[in-house]
Each structure stands twice: as structure tokens, then as C-alpha cells.
Design a protein around this nucleic acid. Structure first.
Length: 118
DNA sequence: GGGTTGACCTGTG
DNA sequence: ACACAGGCCAACC
């Protein structure tokens, strides 16, 4: 197989981002994995930056692996993102989102930790 | 052509 | 909690 053209890669990234459900967030790495780019987290960031928030793509549902907004603290973009997420019912503890509660793919902690469940 | 820079991640100490 | 290293790779000096 020929490697997909950069354009095609971006398209797949947008497709995956569009699938993140309302009220949930996904990490850059997660988006990359689902788009077929195992270590392409950085690529996802570029794709979203290029997007500049315009198309009907829920870019705000993508945060970094710590559950923090990746944009510079206090920047317009960061504030806009935070507001959008809160509007969707996502809660911040300080500047972080608890990915065990709001993460799209919560399998890891869920499977390994299993608090009082069963 | 090379060096640096990111809306990043994972592992190690 | 912090620092550092290695990986990643298109875009930009």
C-alpha cells in the first residue's frame, strides 16, 4: 500500500474527531490511533490548527493526555474551548478534565481499576 | 539543504 | 509533582 497523502491523513483525522460524542473528550493520541497513526498525536494537533475552528468539526473535544487544554493558557482559543466543553456538561477540576469520567475511550482505568463494580 | 518548532505521547528516574 | 529523552513529521525559518 502506498502511504496515504497528507491531505488524506488530515481527512481521516477530521472524520475521527467528528465521531467524538458530545459530552466526551478524546486525547490527541487517541484520535491518532483511531485514524491509523499510532504515534501521530502531533499530526493531529497540526490538522486541528489548520482547521482553525471553522468547519463543523468538534475540535474542542480534543485535549491532551493529561486532560488539559493544549492551547496556550489564557489564549482566546483556550477560553473558547473551555466554554464549549462546559456547555456540553464537561466538568473541570482546576484546569483539568477527569478522563475517567469524560474520556471517549475509558477502557484502561475501567478495566484495570474496577472500584466497587461487580 | 539543515535546524527549529510545535493544539503531542510514552517511558524513566 | 518535575525533568529529561526519544519518537513523530509537516511547516517554517
Amino acid at each position: 500500500m502506498l502511504p496515504p497523502a497528507p491531505q488524506e491523513i488530515d481527512r481521516r483525522i477530521y472524520e475521527v474527531v467528528a465521531q467524538v460524542p458530545r459530552g466526551r473528550v478524546a486525547t490527541y493520541g487517541e484520535i491518532a490511533r483511531r485514524a491509523g497513526l499510532p504515534r501521530g498525536a502531533r499530526r493531529v494537533g497540526r490538522a486541528l490548527r489548520t482547521l482553525a475552528g471553522h468547519p463543523p468539526i468538534p475540535w474542542h473535544r480534543v485535549v491532551n493526555a493529561e486532560g488539559r487544554i493544549a492551547l496556550a493558557t489564557g489564549s482566546d482559543g483556550a477560553q473558547r474551548q473551555r466554554r464549549l466543553l462546559i456547555t456540553e456538561g464537561i466538568a473541570f477540576s482546576g484546569d483539568r478534565i477527569d478522563l475517567r469520567r469524560f474520556g471517549w475511550d475509558r477502557s484502561l482505568d475501567e478495566l484495570l481499576w474496577c472500584p466497587g463494580d461487580r
